[in-house]
Design a protein around this nucleic acid. Sequence first.
DNA 1: ATATCCATGTAACTTGTTACATGATTTG
DNA 2: CAAATCATGTAACAAGTTACATGGATAT
Lengths: 199, 199
Amino acid sequence: MDLRTVLLGFLGRGDLTGYEIRHLMQRSVGFFFGASYGSIYPALKNLEEAGLVRSTLVVQEDRPNKKVYEITPEGRERFRARLAEEMPADDGYRSELLMHLFFGEEHEGGRLLEMVEAYEARCEAKLEELHGVEEEFGEVMSPYQRMCLLSGLSHFRSRLDWAAEVEEQLRVLAGEVDVSHRSRAGSRGGEQGGGRREG
Amino acid sequence: MDLRTVLLGFLGRGDLTGYEIRHLMQRSVGFFFGASYGSIYPALKNLEEAGLVRSTLVVQEDRPNKKVYEITPEGRERFRARLAEEMPADDGYRSELLMHLFFGEEHEGGRLLEMVEAYEARCEAKLEELHGVEEEFGEVMSPYQRMCLLSGLSHFRSRLDWAAEVEEQLRVLAGEVDVSHRSRAGSRGGEQGGGRREG
DNA sequence: ATATCCATGTAACTTGTTACATGATTTG
DNA sequence: CAAATCATGTAACAAGTTACATGGATAT
């Protein structure tokens, strides 16, 4: 689904300025659909040229003037048509952390651990953000919106679980840890274990 | 991490052609880092111009000639330097299914359900693919690669769980289901319930 | 004083995908 | 006989980000 369709969707629920749309989107769909001003403003312009939305300039005195956008009947129709004809593309997922992890051996010292810890912190922040949204809007959200929120919550919880597991494994690999309950062993990989070696 | 760095990483583990790289990537890191020929070939060219890789043309008779790429010492150094200086960007996630779900009310009939079912099928396919990788390469994978694989497995399992929950909720919303064990009630929202209401 | 909020918009740039061009060989 | 595998490469196109330009009002 392209941005223009999304904008029609939002305007279908109320008149908004580009500025407001961006904030709304950030809070509501931000974790699975990003959009910057640099894409929103041109998209609105394009929609207006196509007659799918209309704008009204609202002059303000103590702050910049704004353009309030409103969907037209043709816009509504187009939105519904798009929803009906389109099948959603596969989710896109991209992770640089995983790429780093994949090349784990090439990293020095505690670098990976550092990355994973930062990752966990960010996941936690996202989770809190979503909980904030839940508290603030939970009552007025549609069941569909609640399902979306649930998706975010479950996604980040799952990421967090995975990261915790990875963190532990990394510590073990680094030899920082007494695995279960045996006394602390030497950290270097191969040959700790008695003295005698073959050859 | 940009594609050129990734290519250096792969070539750091063995000589490969562009064609082979693409397949390798698809199977190993494909679910979190995609790359098409249209990006791989130019990137390799670019790396060669920068002296970070070298290529040898291998003439073949029954199939097209190929260019085998090899990393140079400068390439290795650059790769390590990049790993050391770079912090991984936030994961990127984008979902059109969620966008459709967000606008749930605007959809007709069983459309959403259809989408969610297709989604589940794709998640299952991905899971099987990853299990296939596990079986085929599990023994020879590094612990780091195993952590990546674990990420994919846990991710798609989590998506699948969520989708199952959503599917159920959609059925309830559509009034298809007797919630728990009360007799089938009217599907329209507000007022079914016995008679007496508070006020 | 400094930063953030409000508010719109453009231009340069990055990054990638898709489709095309080519073509023998093998597999179904 | 059709399709996939092997193999490289380019060009057109799509889509978006970042940074810049502008500038008063309010909050710290």
